[in-house]
């Protein structure tokens, strides 16, 4: 699973108002302070880390809504 890596990236790029280790995998990241601008940095960092490219079809608010949804998308793109 890539959850741990995602948590590290989220911590570095998410500019959240709460520490990432206080969040559950399904916590709402927008509630935790994720802005759409920070989402861009998060997306680019995820792409670099996992050597993937998010296609237009997943570039939505929902994709970055929780650690779980990010992990699901990353998993799909790695398959």
């Amino acid at each position: 699973m890539h959850i741990d890596k995602i948590r590290v990236i989220l911590s570095a790029h998410g500019r959240l108002t709460q520490p990432v280790d206080k969040l559950d995998d399904n916590s709402d990241l927008y509630q935790a302070g994720l802005t759409s601008l920070a989402t861009v940095g998060l997306m680019l960092a995820l792409e670099d880390e996992f050597d993937i490219e998010f296609p237009d079809s997943v570039l939505s608010r929902k994709t970055f809504g929780s650690i779980e949804t990010i992990a699901d998308t990353v998993e799909d793109l790695l398959d």
């Binding site: 570039l59 939505s60 608010r61 994709t63 970055f64």
Partner: peptide
């Protein structure tokens, strides 16, 4: 850019 698509989608969804 591509990142802008996330922001655009967010703006649209909201």
């Amino acid at each position: 850019g591509r990142g802008g698509r996330v922001m655009a989608a967010t703006q649209q969804e909201q």
